[in-house]
Simulated scan of single mutants.
Amino acid sequence: MIDNRLEYQRMYDVERRLWWYQSLHGRVLRQIRRQFGPNNRSIRILDAACGTGGLLSYLREQGYPHLTGFDYSRHAIDFSQERGLDVSFGDLRRVDDFRPSEHYDVITCNDALYFLTDEEITNALTSIRKRLLPGGLLLVNIHAFEAFAGTHDVAVGSSRRFQHADFERYAGQAGLTIQRHTYWPFALSVPILAVRQWQQYQLRQGRVNIQEVDSDVSYPGDLINGLLRGIMKLEETALSSAPFGSSLFLVMK
């Protein structure tokens, strides 16, 4: 995906209104407020591998002024800077090289670590831990369970998916502790799984041209988007932690 400007364009176009991103961004905000209180806006936040800057833009609207991001893709940086965000080049494999004198209260890293090997993930988490201020949080979202792999994974260049046990190992090696975690979206996991399994079958049968595959990042229309967002709000209210879903959200210290 790093060299695929069209995928970044899709993300940029829908990131602020698509139900999935709205749910993810809301999860990040709730954890920040849980740790630092609802009125503390002075904290410093870094979004590592920030994509087109949707999360940073959302946090800015929530009143957080001290926001920074980095990404490896020139396309992602361009789109982030179009939003007027403080985003520049950075590499998850060399976190120490990004503004080495700066430290942060919150570091987020969403749907990016899958590009790295196990050793590189551990090294990245170790470097991120060193950049956290006392009492700081690391918030990670990542693709979960191989059963959910489909054409989206092909389009974004994802070669694998993860489970909580993987990050227990990475976190322990990096000197971090997982405070809480959940898989999501649990309430939508059955239909998502059915679609992805069908996609896997088509890929195995060679019925899909992998050179022309698009990601799932598209806006389904106001009615369906509102319905899915409503389902997610109910899930977020009813379940603090779910056992299954296509994504894994982790809070680490």
Rank of each mutant, 00 (worst) to 15 (best):
I2Q: 10
N4R: 11
R5D: 15
L6Q: 15
Q9N: 12
R10H: 08
Y12S: 01
R16T: 15
R17T: 09
W19Q: 02
Y21Q: 08
L29N: 07
R30H: 12
I32S: 01
R34V: 07
F36Y: 10
F36W: 06
N39G: 13
R41G: 04
R41V: 06
I45D: 02
I45P: 00
L46T: 03
L46H: 02
A48T: 05
C50N: 01
C50V: 06
G53Q: 00
L55E: 03
S57K: 09
L59I: 01
L59H: 01
Q62W: 06
G63Y: 03
Y64V: 01
H66V: 10
L67N: 02
L67T: 05
T68I: 14
D78F: 13
F79R: 00
Q81M: 09
F89H: 11
L92Q: 01
R93D: 11
P100A: 01
P100D: 04
S101N: 13
E102L: 14
I107Q: 00
T108W: 04
T108H: 01
A112M: 03
L113C: 02
T122D: 08
N123T: 14
K130V: 06
L132D: 03
L133H: 12
G136W: 03
G136T: 05
L138N: 06
V140E: 02
N141E: 15
H152D: 11
V156T: 02
G157C: 02
R161Y: 02
D166V: 09
F167R: 03
F167C: 04
G172C: 07
A174C: 05
G175C: 04
L176F: 05
I178V: 08
Q179W: 11
P191H: 09
A194D: 14
W198F: 14
W198G: 14
Q200G: 07
Q200N: 05
Q202I: 08
L203R: 06
Q205H: 11
R207M: 14
R207D: 10
I210N: 12
Q211F: 13
P220G: 08
G230Q: 07
L234K: 11
L239T: 06
S240L: 15
S240H: 13
S246K: 13
S247D: 07
L250D: 03
